[in-house]
Computed example of a mutant assay.
Amino acid sequence: MGKVLGEKSRDWLCRRAAEFSSIPVEDLKVVSDTTEFMNIHRGHILELDGRHFLVTGYIYEARFGLSDEPKYWVKKAIDLEAGSQQIVKLSHREEFHMRIGRLRIRCYRNPHKEAQVLELVRGNPNFMQGYSLFDGRGNEVRVVDIIRGKSIYDVILNMNTTHEEYFYGPFPGILRKVAGCIASLQFLHDHNLCHGDIRNDHILIEQDTGLYRWIDFDLTQDFSDLDIWSVGNILQFCVGMGMKTFREVLQSDDYPASVKNDLCADDASAFYEHRIMNLQKLFPYIPDSLNDILLHFAVNTNRFYTSISQIVSDIDATLEEMSSPTDTRP
């Protein structure tokens, strides 16, 4: 995995590493084969297509109580040629299955697909930016620019307000920006690519610009409509100001008995049947047009979206309706 450098190369790498970090490099180790990514640690230098990256740490899983769980194939690194901080995603061939209703869907990581997406979206501000390089073993590695900001998941969950205040306050602006982010997915689909891992923590709100930007494109599936169905999870979270679940509502004192008794199995999400998709039952001021969008993703729906552009068109229409002076509060 590692190799010994000539003195000139060693001197140059040591100087650059010392210039950009405080990591000791006396026992300099250059890695040209990244296959065994679990054995690559802080202080190692990755050699990729003649470029060198000093590993400074790991990226950690950002949600659902996994914030202390490192993603060992995703490294923080410094580009020793450019001096820039980067994220380096090593090849990882994970495979698993997920369900939407009765469908069992195979998911697998595909480094080359992510490289294709990065090439396609170069210069498009709705997506993270980066490029691919190869190690000496032929593994395709993605080098990604860091986006400074928080995920929409963190931003919404940390709002200290009631749902009604949220809905009539920041929500329309959030939905408008989310709709723009969702619309950008059609560009991928028009080029026979997909995002593949649409989650609430995979939209980052860039700190300096306020742009909503997609990250992480390495998952893919044998089910072409997964992106469309996954958008429903984003909308359910944004409209509900969090993932409203049956257990949460039934155990909460915030909802009257009449609301709890009115809930039924048909109100569930097709993707996650413990989540409530028919949010109008919880928040009656949600317009019919917006709730109708959510019901396209309910468990027993017979109305389906077949493209991202259809979803965005309906969101635009409901945003126009919500911008009218009519107040739907009871």
Rank of each mutant, 00 (worst) to 15 (best):
I147V: 03
N200S: 07
I308N: 01
L294K: 04
T245I: 10
G136W: 02
I146N: 02
I293Y: 03
V231H: 04
V312C: 08
G138W: 01
Y108A: 05
G2S: 15
Q251C: 14
N192A: 14
A18H: 09
E206V: 09
G242A: 11
P284L: 14
L175D: 02
V312T: 06
K71Y: 10
R176T: 01
A298M: 07
L54E: 06
H52G: 10
T306S: 13
H92Q: 12
K3N: 15
G57T: 07
T161S: 04
V144P: 00
E26Y: 10
H191L: 09
Y58L: 10
Q221A: 06
P170H: 03
G196C: 13
S151P: 00
I228C: 11
R51M: 12
K244I: 13
V299D: 06
I45M: 06
E273A: 02
W73I: 01
Y285L: 13
G240W: 03
F304G: 09
S22E: 13
H92P: 06
C107W: 01
T161V: 05
A62P: 00
T301E: 09
E165K: 09
I205F: 03
W229K: 01
F246S: 15
V143G: 00
L263M: 15
G123E: 12
D197L: 07
A115T: 09
R93F: 06
P125H: 13
T301W: 06
F167Y: 08
R247G: 15
A183I: 06
I198S: 02
Y255T: 07
F53M: 05
H163I: 02
E26S: 14
I308V: 09
G169H: 01
D222A: 08
E320S: 12
V117R: 03
Q280R: 13
F53W: 03
P284W: 11
I100H: 05
N261Q: 15
P256T: 14
H163D: 04
N160K: 11
K8P: 11
Q186N: 06
D262Q: 14
A298G: 15
T318S: 13
L290D: 13
L193N: 01
S252T: 11
C181F: 02
N160R: 07
V121S: 05
R109K: 10
K29T: 08
E61G: 04
C181P: 00
L226H: 07
V312S: 02
D262W: 08
A62V: 00
E248S: 15
G149D: 01
I23F: 06
H296V: 10
R329F: 11
S21V: 11
R15A: 14
D190T: 03
E7V: 14
Y272E: 13
N126P: 00
H274K: 08
S258Y: 03
S184C: 05
Y166C: 02
V239Y: 07
K8T: 15
T318W: 10
R93A: 12
T318C: 13
E36L: 12
H41Q: 13
K177F: 01
I174R: 01
Q280P: 00
E140N: 00
